[in-house]
Nucleic acid binder design. Structure first.
Lengths: 205, 205
DNA sequence: AAAGTTATGTGACAACGTGTATCATAAAGT
DNA sequence: ACTTTATGATACACGTTGTCACATAACTTT
């Protein structure tokens, strides 16, 4: 496969066409049933041109998702301690992003969506959780691994967002963002007002 | 497609062969590169026989995973308040189950796993969270919807388990079960020892 | 155990998707 | 204007899919 020059106008135009074509096709008929020929037709380009830029469908999808994540990351700001209690949290950005790209998120979350997407999203959210933890400027007690903390929170956010879309967005995005953050911070016992007794965390064996 | 009698010995034998063949093949060469012919060869049956029982590869995989899910449901018990602080929680059952069926869970959690089964697993975990909340015998403060609480916790558990398998099981199952439950109960602020000030939950708009 | 029923095996088929090759053409870069 | 390079058109070999009849084997029923 010839290595194309990414700065060439033709190359950039072709790749952008292919990416947008894939998005449109995913919205129209789901990911799995899409063939390379479909993408080429939709992008109004030759099938062989696809192979000159991407090895397979997954590679193109990855390219698209990178853009989506870049867009999300660009908007996501670090969480400062003061921001923990107001509406300007990165989770708010997340929920607004979901609303803006609702159809796409809906398909990615559904049974027709790709699990690869979810995995990437989980890593992304875990990274956000890690930086949030850093901004708190405290280390976990009881030798709780930070990774455990991060992926616990990441899964919680994604699972909640999936439920929210499934149910047809029963609550507004800003409420979801605040309650989601609050729950991750204070836990279920905080939610039921059972603040005592505070049981110490399990110790690593 | 002829409707086969599931009680017929030949049918049960064939389906079992196909299921086991798929598992073996996934172990050997991954899911994506497996063709129907491969499955038929491995199961020592004719290719057309596959089509007489399953519509496609995904259907066979779903069948395998449904069995897994049923097995987990059978073993999962309600969480009593006393069980919250010891090792006998359903989460312990969950992690032991993952270890026992590690290969299948890897598939389920991987990029090619079925999102449908994942969705069912999420609902299952959410139901478990709901019954846990009931056993606490307290209602959430600040009008927090119980569904939000449940799916927040469910996502956290599944996300954490996925990370744990991805990382090659860096901690023992019983530690994971206890830390997972503790984190859902006490939250991230509990994990960093920041118990005050206790910020009240957001109010529904 | 014999007769009837039903699942499986064989071999073949068209349709489709994939990946690659060649050569001419168009569009970019210098 | 000249050179370089990406794209388009066409074709090919190959593997996979889904579906036929028809014969045979295995199971169920009496």
């Amino acid at each position: 496969m010839t290595t194309h020059n990414p700065d060439d106008l033709r190359v950039r135009k072709t790749r952008r066409s292919l990416q947008q074509a894939l998005i449109r096709l995913i919205l129209r008929k789901g990911y799995d049933s899409i063939s390379i020929q479909d993408i080429a037709d939709e992008a109004e380009t030759a099938r062989i041109t696809f192979y000159r830029h991407y090895h397979d469908k997954e590679a193109l999808l990855t390219d698209c998702l990178n853009d989506l994540y870049e867009d999300l990351t660009r908007r996501t700001e670090r969480l400062t301690p003061q921001m923990l209690v107001n509406d300007q949290s990165p989770l708010h950005t997340f929920y607004v992003h979901i609303v803006e790209h609702e159809t796409l998120y809906r398909i990615l979350f559904s049974s027709r969506g790709s699990q690869t997407v979810m995995q990437r999203l989980r890593h992304h959210m875990a990274g956000f959780a890690l930086s949030t933890l850093e901004s708190l400027n405290r280390t976990p007690i009881g030798d709780i691994p930070v990774q455990v903390l991060a992926y616990h929170a990441a899964g919680a956010q994604i699972g909640l967002a999936m439920w929210w879309l499934d149910e047809g967005k029963p609550y507004p995005p800003d409420y979801m963002a605040r309650i989601a953050l609050w729950l991750s911070l204070h836990g279920a016992l905080g939610a039921v007002g059972a603040i005592e007794p505070r049981i110490p965390p399990p110790i690593l064996p």
